[in-house]
Each structure stands twice: as structure tokens, then as C-alpha cells.
Amino acid sequence: MDDDLAELLLRSAGGDQWAFLRFYDATRVAVYRLELMRAGEAESAEQAAAARFVEAWRRAGAHLASGLSPLAWLLSLPVAPARRAAPVRMLHGDGAACA
């Protein structure tokens, strides 16, 4: 499977959108799970996953030189995690938190 994904990345580096779509289909679940663990909620995970695939499209030609498997390379791309709003908490006068 790694060889197939590597070939898809190589073709993607040459501008083959169909190859990148196949790469996306083969790796999207792993990317989404990583981003969901990082973000903690679905909307931010979806945004971060999309950003990761945009970066992969831009850098597809760099995969081979990395020495990593295609999935490891994809998951190691430097992509800022999507930001999510922190829950607002107020304190009562006694120091107890309320939502």
C-alpha cells in the first residue's frame, strides 16, 4: 500500500488531481482522527484536515526526499491546528466555577 500511495504522491507532484483524490481517499480517515485528537471537536478537526491536505498538495514533490512512508509524511507535515473557542467559565464569589 505504501508503494501505491507513494506513486500517487509522485503523480500528484506532477499536477495529477485524480491521483491526489485517490491519495486523499486512502488517507482521509487517519488524518481526520489525528486532527480530532488534536482539536477535540469535529468542526476544527475538519478544518485542520483540509489544511493538511492543501499542504500535502503543495508539497507532494517533497515526499520522496523525506524518507518517510506516505502516511507518516502526511501526518508529519507542519500544519497549525484549527483553533476552537475555549469555553467561557465565570467564577462565583466563592470561587466555584459555573458555565
Rank of each mutant, 00 (worst) to 15 (best):
L36A: 05
A65R: 14
G95Y: 05
R58I: 10
R83V: 12
L36V: 02
A86M: 13
H63R: 02
D3S: 13
G14F: 00
R83A: 15
H92E: 11
F53D: 01
D25P: 00
R11Q: 12
A65L: 06
L5Q: 05
Y24S: 01
V29R: 14
R58K: 13
L5E: 01
E35T: 14
L64K: 05
W73H: 04
Q47Y: 01
W18Q: 15
P87F: 06
P81C: 09
D94G: 05
V31H: 01
R33M: 04
E46S: 13
V88W: 12
Q47S: 07
A30D: 10
R89V: 15
G95E: 06
A48D: 02
Q17H: 10
Y24D: 00
R89Y: 14
S66Q: 12
S12R: 03
G93F: 06
L9V: 05
P78Q: 10
H92W: 13
A82E: 02
G95V: 07
A99M: 07
R59M: 11
L9P: 00
L64M: 07
R28S: 09
Y32H: 13
L74T: 10
A99I: 04
Y32C: 01
A50C: 07
A86T: 12
L10M: 04
Y32Q: 07
L71M: 15
A26G: 02
A86D: 11
D3W: 00
A49W: 00
G67A: 13
D4F: 00
G40Y: 00
A26M: 09
L91H: 10
A62H: 11
A50H: 08
L34H: 13
V31L: 11
G40N: 07
A85D: 13
R59V: 06
M37V: 04
L5H: 02
A42Y: 08
G14D: 08
Q17P: 02
V88R: 15
D3I: 06
S66R: 12
V54Y: 03
A82H: 01
A99R: 12
L71I: 15
D2C: 06
A86V: 11
M1S: 14
E43R: 14
G95C: 04
F20R: 00
D2F: 08
R58Q: 15
A56L: 14
P87E: 15
P78G: 03
A80N: 06
F53M: 14
L77S: 10
R38H: 00
S66E: 12
A60W: 02
G95F: 05
A30Y: 05
A19G: 02
W73N: 00
G15C: 09
V31Y: 02
A49H: 03
A50R: 13
D4L: 12
L75K: 01
A6Q: 04
A45Y: 06
A39D: 03
A19F: 00
M1Q: 10
A85Y: 04
